[in-house]
Design a protein around this nucleic acid. Structure first.
Length: 420
RNA sequence: GGUGGGGUACCGAAGCGGCCGAACGGGCUCGCCUCGAAAGCGAGUGAGGGUUCACGCCCUCCGUGGGUUCAAAUCCCACCCCCACCGCCA
């Protein structure tokens, strides 16, 4: 949710900001609705004020004059019964339309309407040069016994896998590796609930826009989260935290569930696009004046993790049209996949500014006043895709895969050899 | 799933038809005291919204949604959540 006050104070700058996203059609409609609502509100409040004073004075009215005073107050009460539903309707309409308004893009976000207009900022790390024909991660994964997609499909359907043997160990290793690195930087490890109420989904901005991406547990009216961001953002909902506590940093671990609607035929092999995967996520609640510095911090952590894992990558700045609804800015890191000969998203970092904080009512106190915090999130380690990148980049001619040095203490082995 | 208790401001806790947005305590802020601090004393301290250049004025909010009434934190109905114990269970 953006601040609706901006619509009346500075509609032009809101329009300009939304132009980076290719424009937001509901904007003018909403500005008009808001104007009508304020008129109606003034009227209702006036009648309420009259009614309140009439009603209050009854208590001190002489008994013989009460029937007349009550009759008078009743007229005002009846008038309110007519007006209030109108106001409610107007407010409901605004809430419905405003729910679809995305966050205002930061001025550094490139203009654009689709992913084609995202901007590659730079590439980091050396792409491996093989003197043999590198295998893609799906082939390697099968040969090394890292995952079992066939049985995953048997049990649960396509896009579900069993992580097996060294694959399972790699998950534990990567998880601990990421959590340790973040722990040293002020992030409290948290394992989040993966089933949440609608409030958390709406509050984080996944609803109403992204609803078709989310699994729903109808019987209990709960939703499976596609990222721990949802539960981490909901964690401090309705709280007013102490300014001195900021930034509140969490390293969230959770299994994530995504319906992947509309991705038929895309990344059908291996671990790239699954309905279920595990991930360590960075999440910060921070002071609004320093959120862009916090954003850089989150991005730096992501780069250090990738570098420590010796994965070449590039930095991709998302254009306005490719931003999620909650994002004021989004930057992805894409790992190089030598066998597949392409880059693949492995991390994503978003500054949601006050968008989620407003919906979830997360504030802090400063100088006797309360302000909305800013919320930011960024992948630390998406396990499945990181394994993909490790396999393709660290493979050797004999079909084995080496484990990067920094991960070895966690994995307990240096090399994964093909199954005999 | 069963039984019982409970949701009031930053926290704890009273209030159970009419100046109650709410006593009291804690916390916090400011001031006094002190070389400084603690203790003590004094004052202040909820959120959101409308309107105003501003002072201010007004409206809404006591888990949520309905209802009764001129008037609801307080009475009625439904729902949600939390806690405790029992059952079941990783």
């Amino acid at each position: 949710m953006i601040d609706l006050k901006l619509l009346r104070d500075d509609l032009d700058s809101v329009r300009t900001a939304y132009d980076r996203r290719g424009g937001v059609p509901q904007l003018e409609e909403l500005a008009e609705l808001d104007k009508q609502r304020r008129q109606l509100l003034a009227e209702v409040e006036n009648v309420r004020a009259e009614h309140n004073s009439a009603s209050r004075s009854i208590a001190t009215t002489a008994p013989e004059n009460r029937p007349a005073a009550i009759a008078e107050a009743r007229v005002l009460a009846d008038r309110l019964k007519e007006l209030e539903p109108e106001l409610e309707r107007a407010e409901g309409e605004i809430a419905r339309v405003a729910g679809y308004l995305p966050n205002l893009p930061h001025e550094s976000v490139p203009q654009g309407s689709s992913e084609a207009e995202n901007v590659v900022e730079r590439e980091v790390g050396d792409k491996p040069l093989f003197d043999f024909e590198p295998l893609d991660h799906a082939t390697l994964g099968r040969q090394l016994g890292i995952f079992d997609a066939e049985r995953g499909a048997k049990t649960s359907g396509s896009r579900f896998v069993y992580l097996t043997g060294p694959g399972a160990i790699l998950e534990f290793a990567l998880t601990r590796f990421a959590v340790d690195l973040l722990g040293g930087r002020g992030f409290t490890p948290v394992i989040t609930p993966v089933l949440v109420r609608e409030r958390a989904m709406y509050g984080t901005g996944f609803f109403p826009t992204e609803e078709r991406e989310i699994y729903r547990i109808e019987r209990d009216d709960l939703y499976l989260t596609g990222t721990s961001e949802v539960a981490l953002a909901g964690m401090h909902a309705d709280e007013i935290v102490d300014a001195a506590e900021l930034p509140l940093r969490y390293a969230g671990f959770s299994t994530n569930f995504r319906r992947e609607a509309g991705t038929y035929g895309k990344d059908t092999q291996g671990l790239v696009r699954l309905h279920q995967f595990d991930k360590v996520e960075q999440f910060s609640y921070c002071h609004p004046d320093t959120s862009w510095e916090e954003y850089d911090f989150i991005l730096a952590n992501q780069e250090q993790l990738l570098q420590a894992l010796e994965i070449p990558y590039r930095v991709l700045v998302m254009c306005g049209g490719d931003l999620g609804p909650m994002a004021a800015k989004k930057i992805d890191h894409e790992a190089w996949l030598p066998a597949s000969d392409r880059f693949m998203e492995v991390t994503s970092a978003t500054n949601a500014t006050d968008y989620q904080a407003r919906r979830l009512q997360v504030r802090f106190r400063e100088g006797g006043k309360s302000r909305l915090v800013h919320t930011l999130n960024g992948t630390a380690c998406a396990i499945g895709r990181t394994i993909v990148a490790l396999l393709e980049n660290h493979q050797r001619a004999d079909g084995s895969v080496t484990i990067p040095k920094s991960l070895r203490p966690y994995a307990g082995f240096d090399v994964i050899d093909p199954k005999p």
